[in-house]
Nucleic acid binder design. Structure first.
Lengths: 195, 195
DNA sequence: GGCAACCGTGACGTCACTGTCAGTACGCGC
DNA sequence: GCGCGTACTGACAGTGACGTCACGGTTGCC
């Protein structure tokens, strides 16, 4: 097998193994067994377990980062509502498309160790900044309620993370549209009719 | 030192050590060093690392479970709005009161291994059921928007988890009232003014 | 056929952490 | 001051996963 191909193959099976067992319970032996290669081969392509895990997470974050776009309130062609919905739709689609990786992001990568926690927080911080800025801009334009933009951003992200976490961990077969609709409804009108 | 006292002391320092280092990076030696006892002493009181960690998590879940109450839509003395707000307030208060434990719940206990994941999901399922039932009841009474109650419940819980996760992980000094208000606003009217 | 480049192998030494257990220290009743 | 119970100690052997490395097989070129 060619070099790049083998590397990709190991990466793919590692993703499955990590998703199935969790980071610590996944042994190098599990990965090489699943990939049908010898122990030594693994070390030809990756520094160690941590390195391959980081690569999986980094790739996932990169893919995710590419589908999150800034909301342009001036765009005459696309309403803000549509842009918000599209963002939600794209993020949900990417994460549901590859559930093994999503489980790794939302479960296995969490609380791994202080160094990895920092990595996660850096990514979430970038996402939060984007959301927060959009909210601030919207508040100035009067299309977003006044209130703590930072907190709104965190709550919105948390709602997204949790629904995807539940779907992936419980292996639910929730309709993608229902998820997107639910999120948009929550953001745009809440669910309580109380004051 | 008396038996119960020593046990509690080890439990307390273990909580700190787990919160600081994460489950796997926390070694028994770290715990006994922090508790200023010998290695053997630890094993007089706890089966192993897993057992003491589970006890910390179980206690936290029990405490949390005690502050979550059903919303009684018939209660003439307490409006639904007030009851919802009080629930949010109590949950936030309990989790911010002991940040080490909250970090353990929201970060270290996540993705530990499949067995522990199940334990977490069971607890969250109970909480979700309670929220979901309340939402359904509210929908029948017309005080909650129509829509997928299960999804609303998950989103609401996710928003709460995330804001507390961010506060604890980044050691933010966010105002407790701002958090409670933000959550209630999100639930009751969203933040977008769009359709 | 010989040789070189390449990819892959798996047995092996190492190491960090674990849980145990024979032994110490101390207090208390008699 | 002896005997006994209780709490604690820490050196030790066991374990399981890790990363290495000397070697084996295959392909293709001269």
């Amino acid at each position: 097998m060619e070099k790049g191909e083998r590397r990709q193959q190991i990466l793919n099976v590692a993703r499955e193994v990590f998703a199935k067992r969790g980071y610590h319970a996944a042994k190098i032996d599990d990965i090489v067994a699943a990939a049908k290669v010898a122990r030594g081969t693994f070390y030809l392509y990756f520094e160690d377990k941590r390195a391959i895990f980081e690569e999986i997470v980094d790739r996932a974050f990169t893919r995710l980062g590419m589908v999150i776009t800034r909301v342009d309130t001036q765009d005459p062609a696309r309403s803000v509502e549509e842009q918000v919905k599209d963002n939600i739709r794209r993020i949900v689609a990417v994460l549901l498309e590859d559930r093994a990786t999503t489980k790794i992001l939302l479960s296995d990568a969490v609380g791994l160790d202080p160094a990895f926690d920092r990595k996660l927080l850096v990514f979430y911080e970038e996402a939060l900044k984007l959301i927060e800025e959009s909210i601030r801009e919207g508040q100035e334009l009067g299309i977003v309620m006044p209130g703590n933009a930072r907190i709104y951003a965190v709550l919105a992200m948390g709602a997204m993370k949790e629904i995807l976490y539940q779907v992936v961990m419980r292996d639910l077969d929730l309709d993608e549209d229902a998820i997107v609709t639910g999120l948009y409804e929550l953001f745009s009108r809440g669910f309580l009719k109380l004051a």
